[in-house]
Every structure is written in structure tokens, then in C-alpha cells.
Amino acid sequence: MTVPRFWREQPQRYRLLGAECNNCGGIYFPPRTVCPECRRESIGKMVQRQLSGRGTVLAHTVVHQPADGFELQVPYVMAIVELEEGCRVMAQVVDVVPGSVGTGLPVEMTFRRIREDGRNGVIYYGYKFRPMRHTTLDKRVANSIASPKPSSTPPRSPAGSRPRRS
């Protein structure tokens, strides 16, 4: 990845800044300039939307053959996380034993190094997820791990829910 491309995407990668369509209320991450539902009717009505960073694991896999730069973290977990706002994002889940991750696990955004351009290159930072901090892990949340509820907010469109690999 080039430095300018990463730099353009810093607000979304550093703090999950998404987009909302003021025509239909659809929320998108990564942010979009046009709503795929409303199309031209959304022009001029797309606004920035700060996402909460909280969500639940919808699906996950344990990676044993790492991508470049992830060698020290094997085995690690990649998951599709459904955010509270309804959109979905693909990201690494950290601070967990891989076998303990399951569908419905409440997670929150954390800020980590994603990779670096070698020893002399720039360091790319961005979002990953970790299990919800236990201070906020009340009984209700703990129960939801035991019996995950079906997704209440279906993805608005394939594009809106497109997994984003960091």
C-alpha cells in the first residue's frame, strides 16, 4: 500500500469514521460518497458518521498461514464483526485465545499496529477488535455469548457490508 492512499483513509482506519445516508438512514463502513440504495437521491445527503466501535462477532476463522507482517501473531483470529450500527467489518480479533472466539462474542474496537513497510518504512495503524472490556461485560452481555441472537439488522447491501481488510 502506498503512503498517500493510507493517509487518505486514516480517519476510517484510526477511528471508524463511516458514512450515513440522510435520505434513507443507511450507515456504511468504509464510508461511501453515494448511497447504493438511494443512488442519485443521496447525492449531497451523505454525512460522516462516527461509529461506536462496539459489535459482535458474526463469523470468524483462525489463521495459521499468516499474511506478510503477521508472522509473530500466528495463530490469530480474523472475524466479520457486526457493529451496533448494523454495518459489518472484517478485522483481526486480538487479546483472545483463538479457541475462545465464537459467534455472538461482544467486541470493541482497539487501536493497533497493522503492518509496516519494512524496517525503514512507515508504520500503518488501524482498528482491530478485542473482547468487550469486562467492566462493561454485564450479565446481559455474558448471556448473549451463550445464546447468540440472530442478526437483527440485515446488511443494507452487499456493497455496504463489504468486508474491509486492513
Partner: peptide, 16 residues
Amino acid sequence: PSPDEDVATMSVEAAR
């Protein structure tokens, strides 16, 4: 620190 943690990531966590 985990391999993906450094002073910038920990500073962000504490600041948030």
C-alpha cells in the same frame, strides 16, 4: 506488549 502494540497504540488507548 503484544507484537502489534507500541507507544502510539497504548497512548491512543489511554487517551480514549
